[in-house]
Computed example of a mutant assay.
Amino acid sequence: MSSSSLLDLRQTLHQNPEIAGEESATAEKILAFFAKLNPDQTITNLGGTGLAFIFKGKNPGKRSLFRAELDALPIQETGDPSYKSQITDKAHLCGHDGHMTIICGLGEKLAEQRPTSGEVVLLFQPAEETGEGARWILDDLQFQQIKPDFAFALHNLPGFPLHQVVTRKGTFAAGSTGLTISLIGKTSHAAHPDAGLNPAQAIAELIQDLPMLPEKLKNFALVTIIHAEIGSLTFGTSAGKGSLSLTIRAFDQADLESLIEMITSEAKKIALAEKLSCEFRFVESFAVSKNNSDAAEIAEDVIKNLGLDIMIKPEPFRWSEDFGLFSQSCPSYLFGLGAGENCPQLHEPTYDFPDQLIVTGVNVFEGIVRAING
């Protein structure tokens, strides 16, 4: 298939975005594309709308997995490409349309020339943006059939030169989680606050204390307060409940877990002192994305042989990627592909995946396949 038909696929995907957990029509389009490629095995409804296509070699060998994301964002596109999103308030503003197209292009290469050994798994996961999809995939019993020896993924990166590969060994991107702490007391008349249990003081203390907790850790970690709410706009009533929402992030998975532990125990301690009950709700949890040194070596040899410019990033990225969960379960490698210095940032309403990256992405992934599976 020509690169122009990959271009058509990318632009069709761009016009028809679906958000996390709703990607069934997107999955149908990918399924139709692979029907022509005759993979040796197809797994559907993997972790919900997920798909896996398996290309097998004649000889035994390693199983390598390459991942793309199916979901778009719940944001209105304001750019004006000819293939602009046709769905109000939904758009591919993170480039998952491009990432899917790259994995489809890799599928074409594998259909033309099967691997000689082992198996290559092309995985399309749902709900990357919410940090749920990787967990759904790993928890699906069907995943046991495709549990890989190595897993690979890329993400396009605006702000870096077009086609530049951005990488590092060890942590590539932070782990993070959203947390809402709910404090429940008792309302009373505003003239008699002492007759109630108002969470205002506790929330004020948490706002002061929690962002300081990362200082107790050696590596980078961050607590960002994103939302607070106390009572209601009823001037005769002393508040009886409130909540505080924060984002917690760290470069090390153990640090992330101990920071969560510190935050929850601090909140319980303050709630107890104020005679409040306390509940926790975690959302959008992403594991740390960690690059395995063996996987990195294989990939970086390929990247050098392709003559691509490599930038070794001194610090991990502070954002998170759902691929991190794969990296916590098998040797993995996630790298960035520069989308151009003047490309709008990810999640901006004018962002559009640069189509020039399709061939670059396919070439890197095919090189990795040939290095591992022949």
Results as ranks from 00 to 15, higher is better:
70 L>T: 05
119 E>R: 13
107 G>M: 08
115 P>K: 02
175 G>E: 10
51 L>E: 08
159 G>R: 08
60 P>Q: 05
97 D>Y: 06
82 S>W: 14
113 Q>I: 07
132 E>G: 07
98 G>L: 08
178 G>W: 08
126 P>G: 11
179 L>E: 13
173 A>D: 09
102 I>Q: 08
72 A>N: 10
125 Q>C: 06
113 Q>N: 15
178 G>A: 07
116 T>Y: 04
51 L>K: 03
162 L>I: 15
171 T>N: 14
162 L>W: 00
90 K>I: 14
127 A>T: 15
58 K>M: 10
137 I>G: 12
117 S>W: 01
66 F>D: 01
120 V>A: 11
141 L>Y: 04
78 T>D: 11
176 S>F: 06
164 Q>A: 14
150 F>W: 04
50 G>Y: 02
112 E>K: 15
64 S>C: 06
174 A>M: 01
68 A>Y: 01
73 L>M: 13
91 A>Y: 02
136 W>I: 00
144 Q>P: 00
88 T>N: 14
149 D>R: 06
73 L>V: 09
156 N>M: 12
110 L>N: 10
167 T>P: 00
100 M>C: 11
96 H>G: 05
79 G>Y: 01
55 F>M: 00
116 T>I: 15
167 T>D: 09
91 A>N: 13
173 A>S: 15
175 G>N: 02
70 L>Y: 03
144 Q>W: 03
73 L>H: 12
55 F>G: 01
67 R>L: 10
53 F>M: 10
131 G>M: 14
80 D>C: 07
163 H>G: 07
141 L>Q: 13
157 L>D: 02
115 P>Y: 11
162 L>K: 09
54 I>H: 01
146 I>M: 07
158 P>D: 11
64 S>Q: 01
175 G>H: 12
87 I>G: 03
75 I>Y: 07
173 A>I: 09
80 D>L: 08
51 L>P: 09
56 K>L: 04
48 G>M: 05
125 Q>W: 03
140 D>W: 03
110 L>Q: 12
94 C>N: 09
169 K>F: 01
